[in-house]
């Protein structure tokens, strides 16, 4: 296992071992136990130039199950990792575009399979690039390794619709834009409509757009700043179970990462069905407008 990045900023977080800085990564490129994975929204971005030695994992075509709305199965996951030279003991550092959305999403899927040492490059692709660090189009040729076939654990950090229904009245974080939360918009501003027939939010959900956790340069805000938002302003308790959701579970995996690893919340689950499931489900409760609303019978 690669050493933890000793940056003072990370030492403040609940789990400093989950982040690495661009300096740390530059120093550890080529370490045999470190595999760098780029995961982007844009399927071609990696191919225009990537961190030397980094492999690509595409969320759409490689992490999603090709038929069922689900993630890949244990055999497919083992194959995916093995081909990229990722062993069960490897330190996997994820980075990507868009403030590491897809990087945290990929990391979350790796955690579903119980891969232990997964980390995020603070600031992602944009920071690496802004610092004028090397990008290459040279395709790495990892030595294939044997990755074990491990059952996915969908209990600890993943929530399904039924889980959300039985959690109503508990801590929920809606990480979408204010317009999506209130129900004025059925999709992200400037993004395609992905087919929800109802707008609004899950009753009782706090509205904390995911990007509030990031600085301008894509790095995570400090522990104190994050605590001010989630704990002081929103009144969320780290000892209570929490479910985060967005539209398809990508933006909320960013918030899941922040709550779990940076603030040390216990029992945070990401609801990947998110609004594209909830907003299409028959007879589930929905609240419209800027108020959280409450769950009938629970208050």
């Amino acid at each position: 296992m690669a050493p933890t990045d000793p940056s003072p900023k990370f030492a403040e977080y609940a789990h400093p071992e989950r982040l690495v800085s661009t300096d740390w990564l530059a120093e550890h490129l080529g370490d045999p136990d470190v595999v760098v994975v780029e995961s982007d929204e844009d399927v071609l971005l990696y191919d225009t130039g990537h961190i030397p030695g980094a492999v690509k994992i595409d969320w759409h075509t490689e992490l999603n199950h090709p038929v069922t709305r689900d993630y890949v199965d244990p055999e497919q996951f083992a194959l995916l990792c093995g081909e990229r030279g990722i062993a069960r003991e490897s330190t996997v550092v994820f980075y990507g575009d868009r403030n590491n959305w897809w990087a945290t999403y990929a990391l979350w899927v790796f955690r579903l399979f119980g891969h232990e040492d997964v980390r995020i490059l603070d600031g992602g692709r944009a920071k690496w690039q802004a610092e004028g660090r090397e990008l290459t189009t040279e395709q790495p040729k990892p030595n294939p390794v044997e990755y074990p076939i491990v059952e996915r654990d969908d209990i600890a950090i993943r929530a399904f619709k039924e889980d959300v229904l039985s959690h109503l009245g508990g801590q929920l974080v809606d990480v979408r834009s204010p317009g999506e939360y209130s129900g004025e918009l059925l999709h992200m501003p400037d993004y395609p409509q992905e087919g929800a027939v109802r707008g609004g939010h899950v009753p009782g959900a706090s509205s904390v757009p995911w990007a509030r956790a990031a600085n301008e340069d894509g790095t995570f805000k400090s522990r104190a700043e994050l605590s001010a938002i989630y704990e002081d302003e929103q009144g969320l308790s780290k000892d209570e179970p929490t479910i985060a959701y967005c539209r398809i579970g990508e933006r909320s995996s960013h918030t899941w990462f922040v709550l779990s690893y940076l603030l040390g919340f216990e029992g945070v689950r990401n609801y990947d069905g998110s609004w594209t499931e909830w907003g299409n489900s028959v007879r589930v409760p929905i609240v419209q407008g800027a108020d959280k609303g409450s769950v009938k019978g629970s208050s």
Binding site: D42, V43, L44, L45, D47, T48
Partner: peptide, 9 residues
């Protein structure tokens, strides 16, 4: 933008 190669494609 250049960081959107798929869209450019």
């Amino acid at each position: 933008p250049p960081e959107a190669p798929t869209t450019r494609g």
